[in-house]
Amino acid sequence: MTTDLRPPKVLMTKIGLDGHDRGGRVVATYLRDAGMEVVFTGPWKSIPEVIATAQEEDVDVIGISSLASDHLLVPKLMAALRENGLDHVGVVVGGIVPDRDERDLLAVGVARVFHPGASLDEIVPFVDRLAKNVRQRRQGL
């Protein structure tokens, strides 16, 4: 078996103190319906919790849902991923992110920021491709 046919594995989570998790739930459901395996945690996760979960579950992609400025914590998350040897994991952010902040997030390695009104027809194929790229870069034990 040389090709990796298993479904993409995505961690859908929310960092910070904001509890608006409807958006993350909707996206998680659509990723599931697109055939992906989605670890769903709900809101209020600390960065160390996200790191531990991403590591234990060996996910390909982390989706961060942000409504009320949680996205400002994402650069810290990216640094923590690097420190913990998880820099192969793709990170996408969805929610309310001002343009200026988006540039900062992309600069620290976020693969993509999805804004309000983003279509699931955009999100699903993007996450799928990202997961496949992550996996190709990562072979062996």
Binding site: P7, A28, T29, L31, R32, D33, A34, G35, M36, E37, V38, V39, F40, T41, T53, E57
Partner: peptide, 9 residues
């Protein structure tokens, strides 16, 4: 679809 929500944790 083969997809799954893994929510036990």
């Amino acid at each position: 679809t083969g997809g799954a929500i893994l929510g036990d944790r």
